Computed example of a mutant assay.
Amino acid sequence: MDVRSITDHLQHIRSLSNEPATTGAPVTNEELIVKILSGLGLEYCEILTAIRAHDTIITYEELYEKLIHHELFLKHKDMKKTPTPITTAIAQKNNFNNKN
């Protein structure tokens, strides 16, 4: 998936799926879910595995909720990796003290 948010990705796929409906060939929920899942990047691998493990097909609404929560989880995880100014200052101070 590119750098679009999950919301943008889902809206884009949903709009594409609505086009065939106007020509008389509506897209099924299963086709919509497969299209959405196939467009996700590696960072969604864990949740894709869990979704595919279901005995029944997930609804669009359930998938939307799960992907939004996973996106928030990923953002929170990335924030933990980024050092804050305080953490950086302490690390630099400790490094300076260890050299002296």
Rank of each mutant, 00 (worst) to 15 (best):
L32A: 06
Y60I: 01
I51R: 03
H70Y: 09
H12I: 08
H70W: 09
L37F: 04
D2L: 07
H69E: 07
L48Q: 11
F73L: 04
E43M: 09
G24Q: 00
I57T: 05
P83W: 14
P85R: 01
G39V: 00
I68Y: 08
K99T: 11
T49S: 12
K81C: 08
L32K: 00
T28K: 02
G39A: 04
C45Q: 15
I90T: 02
D55F: 10
E46A: 15
A89E: 08
H12R: 11
T22Y: 04
D78H: 07
N100W: 10
L32Q: 05
L72E: 14
D78E: 15
H70S: 08
K80I: 09
Y64A: 01
I6Q: 03
K75G: 01
T22I: 13
Y44V: 00
E19V: 14
L32C: 04
K81W: 02
Y60M: 03
E46N: 15
K81P: 05
E46P: 03
L32F: 02
T88D: 05
R4K: 08
K93W: 13
E19A: 13
K35F: 07
N95H: 15
L40K: 02
S38H: 12
D78R: 11
M1E: 11
H76M: 13
S5T: 04
K77H: 14
C45N: 13
A53E: 10
A50D: 14
Q92A: 15
L16F: 01
N98M: 12
Q92C: 08
L72W: 07
M79P: 00
T22D: 07
L32V: 00
T82P: 00
N94A: 10
E43I: 04
Y60C: 07
R14P: 03
L72N: 15
N94M: 14
Y44E: 01
I51E: 00
N94G: 11
E61D: 06
P20D: 01
F96A: 10
K77Y: 12
D8R: 11
H9G: 07
Y60G: 05
K81Y: 08
H9A: 02
L67T: 06
D2V: 01
I33Q: 00
E30F: 10
M1L: 10
K80S: 10
I57H: 04
H9C: 08
L67G: 03
I58Q: 01
R14Q: 11
A25F: 06
G41N: 05
S15I: 04
K75E: 09
P26N: 05
T22G: 06
K35C: 14
T49P: 03
M79I: 10
N29D: 09
L10P: 05
Y64K: 06
P83K: 12
F96G: 03
D8W: 07
M1K: 09
Y44H: 07
C45A: 15
